[in-house]
């Protein structure tokens, strides 16, 4: 990301990430003894600072209700997509029709785009192959798709809109 040098290094610039690092360290050790607590604190302070160039600015989430709703949608779609793909795999009579689906993006936040690409890959029969930040487009390969335009619109309505609400 190009934003690496534009903001100063601060301690605790990413409080959420620090919390996650400390929590996963303590959980991995499975103890809350003093040495582990000290190590967790040091890691939580040092790692986000050392990675500041990669992380970019702190993300501000504007609507936590949307985050919860979006998580629900995605988890549900993961289960549905697995059953869909399993049906296609296990039915030798039916040859799926693969297609390339270009999805034009309205979302501009880099983390939002990365999250959208991740969500596309984990949901129904689609893998995001190329994220083109210059053209603002994600190139998606669909396993079984007869109407690429409708699928692109579906992805935009279902995933991109809530992500824009969250990030912008």
């Amino acid at each position: 990301m190009a934003t690496g040098t534009s903001h100063p290094k601060r301690w605790l610039a990413h409080p959420f990430m620090s919390a996650i690092i400390a929590a996963s360290w303590l959980l991995l050790q499975q103890s809350f003894a003093v040495p582990q607590l000290i190590t967790a604190t040091v890691l939580a302070l040092l790692l986000p600072r050392a990675l500041a160039g990669f992380l970019g600015p702190q993300v501000k989430v504007s609507s936590w209700a949307t985050v919860v709703r979006f998580t629900g949608i995605v988890l549900w779609d993961i289960v549905v997509s697995n059953i869909t793909v399993a049906k296609i795999v296990l039915n030798p009579a039916r040859e799926p029709q693969p297609a390339w689906v270009p999805v034009p993006l309205d979302i501009r936040h880099p983390n939002g785009i990365a999250l959208l690409a991740t969500v596309i890959t984990t949901t129904p029969g689609t893998v995001s192959c190329v994220i083109d930040e210059d053209r603002h487009e994600i190139l998606v390969h669909a396993l079984d798709c007869s109407d690429p335009a409708a699928m692109a619109q579906d992805i935009k309505n279902r995933y991109e809109r809530p992500l824009r609400e969250i990030f912008e």
């Binding site: 289960v79 793909v85 795999v89 799926p96 693969p98 984990t122 029969g125 893998v127 390969h141």
Partner: peptide
């Protein structure tokens, strides 16, 4: 197992890519 079958069965690389990324993760 479905992921493995998809990997072995599908006809081209990009279709094979779907089987492991979904089925195997779940």
């Amino acid at each position: 197992l479905v992921g493995g079958i998809g990997l072995a069965r599908f006809g081209d690389f990009f279709m094979r890519l779907h089987a492991p990324t979904k089925a195997t993760t779940l």
